[in-house]
Amino acid sequence: MRLFFLLLLCSACAMAQEKPVYTDARNFQFIGKGLPTDPVYVRLDTVQTRPMTQAVKYLSTHSAGIAVLFQTNSPYIRARWQLAKGLFYANITPIAHSGLDLYCLNKGRWQWCGVGRPGDKDTLNEGPLVSDMDTAMKQFLLYLPIYNQVTSLEIGVAPGASISRVEKPAVDTTRRVVIYGSSILQGASASRAGMAYPAILQRRTGWEFINLGYSGNGKMEFPVAELLATMPAKVFVLDCIPNPSAEEIRERAYPFIKHLLTKRPEVPVLLVETAFREHGYFDLKVGKVVKEKNDVIRDVYTKLKSEGFKQLYYLPATGLIGHDHEATIDGTHLTDLGFMRQAEVMLPLLEKLMKKSAPAK
């Protein structure tokens, strides 16, 4: 009996000392990218952002919306990832800002199964994502940080386990929705990357969503419109009204949207109003500013429709994040509740537009 327990103890020790085998994530499929980039972990690279503002150049290095698809039969999954900075924001969780978010395909639906927790000091992170699974082959979707730049990523599995590209991905990359917007789109203030509304919609639909949210800088500069027009897409969404001033919307929205409509007549474009700022119900100045922005963009929409652009659609902010005033962390940025509500409001309209879209180029 003593020998039996010693054998069990030795076996446990061996398991504890087992070193995972790491594979560079670049061996697997990346989704959530509007165009190919170098390096692969950024949303836009230095060539693509050359004519853009310094803020957009910097924010393009954040990996919001980018995810890795892979399959493995390992009983556990670990990750090792290097970040450009260790900075966290007050209104974003460290896991959302700089961590990883793992989903597994279970009976045809994506189900959350673990997160990668970043350290509070070092930019090199390593840790478990999920443990003690059965060893059936499974498909996984790993979301990257929403507010940091990843410079390297490795996925670790048990020695002898298989890990590879997915043979039949559960994300249809021929159905691409490209969304341009603000910090809300980028993911502030989801609890983790998979709870930003484009990621929610991606799992609900099985389509590929491209997150081009630029915190404080989705201001409709014309070079962005020119780049958007080159991206493969079946639907474009412009959810950028929170960032520009009413005057900037007057100056920029018409040429920005008209360029996209003219260059890509086969692709529906959905224009989304900015949700009302919760503190605007009390701060009259804020309330006036938000109302003016929505009034101006509605006028731009009306003008473009009168010019015959039938592929332009409009989503008012009414009910976008509910009516109970409980969907934000700070009056502006959404919690998981707010993101879920916005996804549910947008989903039926996006399904309608996807059916209208011509084959993606």
Rank of each mutant, 00 (worst) to 15 (best):
F28V: 02
T123D: 06
S245K: 06
F70A: 02
A193D: 00
H333L: 10
A343H: 05
Q48M: 10
Q186R: 02
H62Y: 08
A327L: 09
N27K: 14
D38W: 07
V224M: 14
L141S: 06
A84Q: 02
K168N: 11
V290C: 08
H62Q: 02
V130M: 06
P348H: 14
K285Q: 07
I95Q: 09
T37Y: 05
F276V: 02
G156H: 03
P223F: 14
W112A: 10
P244K: 09
E247V: 08
D132Y: 07
Q29V: 04
T205L: 15
G194R: 08
T318H: 12
A90P: 01
Q342H: 06
P244Q: 09
Y197P: 04
P232K: 01
C10W: 14
M231W: 02
M1H: 11
V272E: 10
M220L: 15
V224W: 00
K121Y: 15
K258R: 13
P255H: 07
V56N: 08
R165S: 11
K293E: 01
F282G: 04
G116H: 08
M231L: 08
I77E: 03
D324L: 14
A246N: 03
W110A: 07
G218F: 10
L271Q: 05
P36N: 06
Q149E: 06
E266K: 14
L102F: 15
P94Q: 09
R204F: 15
C240W: 11
A170H: 07
S131D: 05
E344N: 11
Q202R: 10
A90D: 12
G213T: 00
A225R: 03
T123H: 11
I31E: 00
R250C: 12
N211W: 04
P169G: 02
T53Y: 13
G160L: 04
E154W: 08
L8H: 03
Q29S: 08
K355H: 14
V68R: 13
D101E: 12
M133S: 05
I179N: 05
F236R: 05
R203Q: 13
S189C: 12
R341H: 12
A253Q: 10
S191N: 10
W112S: 10
K352T: 15
S74I: 07
L312H: 04
V115E: 12
E278W: 15
V115A: 14
M137L: 15
N217L: 09
G181R: 06
P348M: 13
Y22M: 06
